[in-house]
Simulated assay, not measured.
Amino acid sequence: MTDKVKNIAIVIDGLTGGGAERVMLSLASELVVQGHSVSLLSLGNRCDYSIPEGIKMSYLFNHKASKVDRFWQIKASVSKLEEWFTQQENQGKAFNLVLSNLDRSNNLLAKSNVKNVYYIVHNSVEEELQRQKKLGPLSYWYLLKSKQNLSGKNLIAVSKGIEQEVLIGNIIKPKSIRTIFNPFDINDIKLKAAIENPNIPNEPYIIHVGRLAKQKRHDILFAALAQVSADVKLVLLCNKPAKALKLAEKYSVAERLILPGFQDNPYNWIKHAQALILSSDYEGFGNVLVEAIAVGTKVVSTACPHGPDEILTGELTEFLVPRRDATALAKAIDTVLNTKLNLSDAGILNKVSACDIAHQYLSLTKSPSKS
């Protein structure tokens, strides 16, 4: 138990799966372990995760909250958000630190009177905007305004690459920005990796963990698999296995796929893999790379912005390949499968322990933000 209990609120768009959601649950869990009071406020009313014990869970809206920050609703939404914080304060719970995650939460908090807010940037701003352009001018304008709302605010980047991108770019002019890596409970990951699962195949396989989204570039992954000479299957832990199978058929690799669907515990699947592959166009950090290294599984990753080059250092840099290059990815997969690596002393493992990361977040309470 810590000397002085801090009251911390974590605000997020929803809890329907995804990296930011898992990261915040890990952080919240560690803060509770350290004796602090954590309130998790989700805008949307759906939750796909089991909430760790000790976290106070609230939902701001009784629906999925997908449009609550649009111009015709934002004033009422901000009022509802402020009312929630006022109620907490009236119950003797003023927050020492508020952590905002994802665009809708950011948009509401940026226009509110809530104090001590830090906004966490989980992904490449430039890459997200480039992707959004393809969805049309209205979608692009919404995302651009959402990012610009972070100007004048205190930001946390989940990788040094994101911090540099923000500082060099002209989209966000933050009041302050610092990098805090995502937290990982390495011991918990290892414990979950040791759980026996009869569904895990005995034959050699490589693995990809991630939702079926354009950012993750399953097309590049399947094109690379078609060129991999090693006799391995590909386990795909994703949210839309039927759609993934249809895409794999275009690359004539459908018969090499194993599709268990989304797994609440992916770590034992990762542990038994010959290697984990990340084929993304961009990431915020690249959590699955750390998780694989933590359980002793080799990795190959695209050198995408941002995160992988901060995780794969030293001899592991050999397994960073150019983005969108299926041939280079295939060669790296074949190489890693024939390379012995000692991952137990990988430098990244000393930088991401949940305990240390929680302390870095708690240090923000010593100089409270006024925005």
Rank of each mutant, 00 (worst) to 15 (best):
L143F: 14
L143H: 14
L143Y: 14
K145F: 08
S146I: 00
S146Q: 03
S146E: 02
S146R: 02
K147H: 14
K147N: 11
Q148N: 08
Q148S: 09
L150G: 12
L150Q: 11
G152M: 05
G152D: 09
G152E: 10
G152Y: 09
K153A: 11
N154D: 15
I156F: 04
I156K: 04
I156E: 04
I156Q: 02
K160G: 12
G161Y: 05
G161C: 08
E163A: 13
E163V: 04
Q164G: 08
Q164K: 14
Q164V: 09
E165Q: 15
E165S: 13
E165G: 13
V166N: 01
V166I: 15
V166Q: 00
V166H: 01
V166G: 04
L167M: 15
L167S: 12
L167E: 11
I168E: 15
I168L: 15
N170V: 04
I171G: 04
I171K: 11
I171H: 03
P174M: 01
K175T: 08
K175A: 14
S176K: 09
S176I: 04
S176C: 04
S176R: 08
I177C: 00
I177K: 01
T179P: 08
I180H: 07
F181C: 10
F181D: 06
P183M: 06
F184T: 00
D185I: 05
I186W: 12
I186N: 03
N187D: 13
N187P: 03
D188M: 11
D188K: 14
I189E: 01
L191R: 14
L191K: 15
L191T: 15
L191P: 04
K192F: 07
A193Q: 14
A193Y: 01
A194E: 15
A194Q: 15
A194W: 11
E196K: 13
E196H: 11
E196R: 07
N197D: 15
P198M: 06
N199L: 15
I200C: 10
I200K: 01
I200P: 09
P201I: 11
N202V: 08
P204F: 06
Y205M: 07
I206C: 12
I207R: 03
I207Q: 02
I207Y: 10
H208F: 10
H208C: 13
V209G: 08
V209T: 02
R211D: 06
R211T: 05
L212F: 11
L212V: 03
L212C: 07
A213G: 03
A213W: 06
A213V: 10
K214A: 14
Q215S: 04
R217Q: 15
I220M: 09
I220L: 10
I220T: 01
I220H: 04
A223C: 03
A224K: 03
A224S: 15
L225I: 08
L225W: 06
L225D: 07
L225Q: 06
L225R: 01
A226W: 01
A226P: 02
A226F: 02
A226V: 02
Q227W: 01
D231R: 04
D231A: 12
D231Q: 09
V232N: 07
V232T: 09
K233F: 07
L234D: 00
V235T: 13
L236M: 04
C238Y: 02
C238L: 06
N239H: 03
K240Y: 10
K240A: 14
K240M: 09
K240S: 10
P241D: 06
P241S: 03
